[in-house]
């Protein structure tokens, strides 16, 4: 019991930036879902069992276009394929961590990844519960945020046009943070250029998978120069 409390107290301060971010984004998601006529039940279901912010926003767009489960499944794989890379990055850290491992894997969001990949387990803190509480608190913030949004949305009339731009803003900000955190800007340029090129070639609804293949191609071809460091 004591080990858990120590781990919770060590994890909590690290999750505060995510607390604010998830409450804001989660609320936006809850309001958006409500504005499209979805009951709180589906908002909660999504936030607990999908728990992938950008994909949850995309589900609203997908449902507006009609019922297409296979299309939705492929879209999910495309939009969330980046999780594969987070998983690869955490393979070592999550090794031998015990029975919380499945939960840690299922809740590895962009934000949780950004904390756990850089956080060092403090001395005297149990590794297992430390990682568990970071993941669990973030999950809780997201669920709480979407609940607030869903309830608020049903009480107040909002003009929500453009609210999904929260997500665009988030990615733009992460992009700037990443850009400033490294001297090698080629990966970012490859990502943006591949996506723009494939969007122009394949149109708005079919370009994510070609874009990912293009990224994989350029990143692989440029492996040797890239590892030598500074390129762009």
């Amino acid at each position: 019991m004591k080990a858990k409390k120590v781990a919770l107290l060590a994890a909590l301060p690290l999750t505060i930036p995510v607390l604010t971010g998830y409450i804001v984004l989660g609320t936006a998601y809850g309001i958006l879902m409500d504005s499209k006529g979805f009951s709180l039940l589906w908002t909660l279901f999504s936030s607990i069992f999908i728990y992938a912010g950008s994909m949850q926003f995309v589900t609203v767009t997908l449902l507006a276009a009609g019922f297409d489960p296979i299309g939705a499944f492929l879209m999910t794989l495309a939009v969330n394929a980046r999780h594969i890379f987070y998983g690869i990055s955490m393979l070592k850290q999550y090794r031998g961590i015990g029975n919380v491992k499945p939960y840690l894997i299922l809740t590895l969001t962009d934000e949780t990844f950004s904390i756990v990949c850089s956080a060092e387990v403090p001395k005297g803190v149990d590794r297992k519960w430390f990682y568990f509480f970071i993941s669990f608190l973030d999950h809780l913030y997201w669920i709480t945020g979407s609940l607030i949004g869903g309830i608020l949305g049903s009480m107040v009339e909002f003009n929500t046009k453009g609210i999904d731009f929260v997500l665009t803003s988030l990615f733009v900000v992460i992009l700037i943070n990443q850009w400033r955190s490294t001297t090698n800007h080629l990966p970012a340029v490859i990502g943006i250029a591949s996506a723009i090129l494939c969007r122009l070639l394949f149109g708005p609804s079919n370009f994510i998978i070609p874009a990912m293949l293009s990224i994989l191609f350029f990143v692989t071809v440029l492996k040797t120069p890239m590892e030598r460091g500074k390129l762009l």
């Binding site: 990615f171 992460i174 890239m226």
Partner: peptide
């Protein structure tokens, strides 16, 4: 795979920005 793990997070966010603006 280790190399991909280091590089890909930097490419994927740029792609997501474009996705939002598609």
């Amino acid at each position: 795979i280790k190399y991909l793990a280091d590089i890909l997070p930097f490419t994927i966010i740029g792609m997501l920005v474009v996705y939002c603006l598609k």
